[in-house]
């Protein structure tokens, strides 16, 4: 008997068993479904109430954040919680070699695995004790998604005030303390959320695989390049996920570029 015949026979058997020994959907299964649905609605209602009144020390966050401002100087690019696992992957991979793996590769691979599952696992066996691979895979997926979500939720964000406090020490180490334009750029850099993605002499948190910028000036790219990159990163470095900072204005961009070019790696 071919494998497909076996599966067909089992399904015919299933239909027969259900006909003979099954019970009607209403009221038995429907009762369970109704109770569960009521629980779901109550949970959603309670979450809304906890959020509204800020119970448990504002556990569910503020009612409304500050208004979006494209010309902002400080932001935390944080997605909704169910993307945290991807968000955290972005901190692990480095631009440009492997970041595409995190952004596009891993989601695509996960999707393909899920879609292919019923065509790969062709056995009729459904008992868990006889499906060790499936069970181990499920446990591993749950654990790794859990850990990545937790890491993403607790990932440290660079706080503008702290970064700013580090500027004088940067100036000393990088030797641009005398360059007023670069100093102004460093201060802008500290408060413009650059350090949410870039590290600079150990300050800031790495994200999206963005490079460390302590030695950006040593690459010899020039102020003009830096300005056009800041204005539209993906126009210069194709596929760059870095946001455009054109809204900062030509003057500020010039200061930032001077600072970047003055950063030769320090001592």
């Amino acid at each position: 008997m071919s494998a497909l015949d076996d599966r067909r026979r089992r399904f015919t058997q299933y239909k027969e068993d259900v006909k003979k020994r099954g019970k009607p959907f209403y009221p038995y299964a429907m009762f369970h479904d109704t109770v569960m649905s009521l629980v779901v609605v109550c949970v959603i209602f309670l979450l809304a109430v906890v959020w509204r009144y800020g119970w448990f020390g504002d556990a569910l966050g503020p009612l409304n954040g500050p208004k979006a401002d494209p010309g902002t100087t400080s932001f935390v690019p944080r997605p909704d919680w169910y993307f945290y696992f991807l968000f955290y992957l972005l901190r692990i991979f480095k631009w440009p070699e492997s970041v595409i793996l995190a952004t596009v590769g891993i989601p695509t691979i996960l999707l393909i695995i899920l879609l292919a599952l019923p065509f790969v696992d062709l056995r009729t066996e459904r008992r868990l004790g006889r499906r060790p691979v499936a069970v181990v895979a499920a446990v591993l997926v749950v654990i790794s998604m859990g850990v990545l979500t937790y890491k993403g939720a607790t990932a440290k964000e660079a706080i503008a005030a702290e970064v700013k406090a580090a500027v004088p020490s940067w100036a000393k180490k990088e030797g641009f303390a005398g360059n007023k334009e670069a100093l102004a750029g460093a201060n802008l850099f500290a408060v413009s959320a650059c350090t949410n993605c870039h590290t600079y002499l150990g300050t800031g948190s790495s994200n999206l695989g963005a490079p460390d910028l302590s030695a950006e000036g040593a690459k010899g790219k020039g102020i003009q390049f830096q300005i056009s990159h800041l204005k539209c990163p993906s126009c210069v470095n194709s596929g760059s996920p870095m946001p455009a900072f054109a809204d900062l204005g030509q003057d500020n961009l010039k200061k930032l570029a001077t600072f970047l070019e003055a950063s030769k790696g320090g001592k």
Binding site: N64, K67, A68, P79
Partner: peptide
Amino acid sequence: DQTAYWATVVAIN
């Protein structure tokens, strides 16, 4: 709001 806006900037990128 700010978080939403910038998360979306990054998501689109």
